[in-house]
């Protein structure tokens, strides 16, 4: 039970980084980056490969953020000129490219076999959870500061009306690339923390199912609200974990299906009764 709770909170802190960073692009800048998980996966693979090749974690962790962020910057530079739906489709396409690469670049990723034996950052799970808490706290504080800064207000202005921001002298293209770069940097950090926690990654890390959970957490918490994202992650994580306790004598496969049903139910209720999510500042 104790170990299980530690695991639940460890995941909560990783998800907080992931969801808050997605909120920066989606909620604050209006860039619906459906490929966010690809950058989480890139961070996880980068950190795994670096540490498996003997590079210490304290270099691998920031490096995986930088690698994911650099990919984000390049891809954003090419795609953010696309309007609305087209950007989303291209971003989603990215996720599929990431899956294909991780499955087929066998010499690097070992394909579907995955990468086992990723070294721990901290052996003791409780202390690692505290470490995750600290990183999540730092990320949240930074992103909170950013979204309230002049740059953050420009992100939000672009989300509300890009043309109006442009005729007020703002280079909207650069700001959008910047938003995606920062957002994917933190996705990479979350990926790295995740890889070192579970010590094994394979291409299923890019699965859309996983992204649906992240998206649900974001929407339930509310767009353009950092406290909303934290609450969304916590509420959904706790509810999904509670299922395992309530139905102790059900087979694990059924639990998985029940989790998805519960998730969709929560999402449906929120979208009907609170379309802006719990703390959302803008419409979905």
């Amino acid at each position: 039970m104790y170990e299980y709770l530690i695991a639940v909170f460890a995941y909560i802190f990783i998800y907080i980084i992931l969801v808050v960073s997605l909120n920066l692009a989606f909620g604050f800048t209006g860039l619906v980056n459906l490929g966010h998980m690809a950058f989480f996966g890139v961070g996880a693979y980068a950190s795994a490969l670096l540490t498996l090749h003997g590079i210490p974690w304290y270099i691998a962790l920031p490096a995986s953020g930088l690698i994911a962020g650099s990919f984000g910057a390049v891809i954003a530079a090419i795609t953010v000129r696309l309007k609305g739906d087209y950007f989303q489709i291209v971003a989603l396409g990215l996720a599929f490219i990431a899956i294909a690469v991780s499955r087929n670049w066998i010499s690097l990723t070992r394909g579907a076999l995955g990468l086992p034996g990723i070294p721990d950052i901290i052996k003791n799970n409780f202390y690692y959870m505290l470490f995750l808490f600290a990183v999540a706290l730092l990320s949240v504080v930074f992103l909170y500061w950013l979204t309230n800064s002049e740059t953050g207000k420009i992100f939000q202005a672009i989300r509300d009306d890009e043309t109006a921001a442009a005729v007020l002298g703002k280079n909207t293209y650069l700001y959008k690339v910047l938003s995606i770069t920062i957002s994917t940097f933190f996705a990479g950090i979350a990926g790295s923390l995740f890889a070192h926690y579970i010590s094994f990654i394979d291409p299923t890390i890019f699965d859309l199912e996983f992204f649906v959970i992240i998206l649900a957490m974001l929407i339930v918490g509310g767009l353009a609200s950092i406290s909303g994202s934290i609450l969304g992650v916590t509420v959904i994580s706790l509810l999904l974990s509670a299922i395992s306790f309530v139905f102790t004598n059900i087979s694990p496969e059924l639990i998985g299906a029940m989790r998805q049903m519960l998730l969709m139910l929560i999402l449906l209720l929120i979208l009907i009764y609170r379309p802006r999510g719990m703390f959302g500042k803008v419409d979905v």
């Binding site: 939000q156 202005a157 989300r159 509300d160 009306d161 043309t163 921001a165 500042k281 803008v282």
Partner: peptide
């Protein structure tokens, strides 16, 4: 074209 979700000040 105002920024709908921002305050008058912002």
């Amino acid at each position: 074209k105002v920024f709908r979700n921002l305050s008058v000040r912002d």
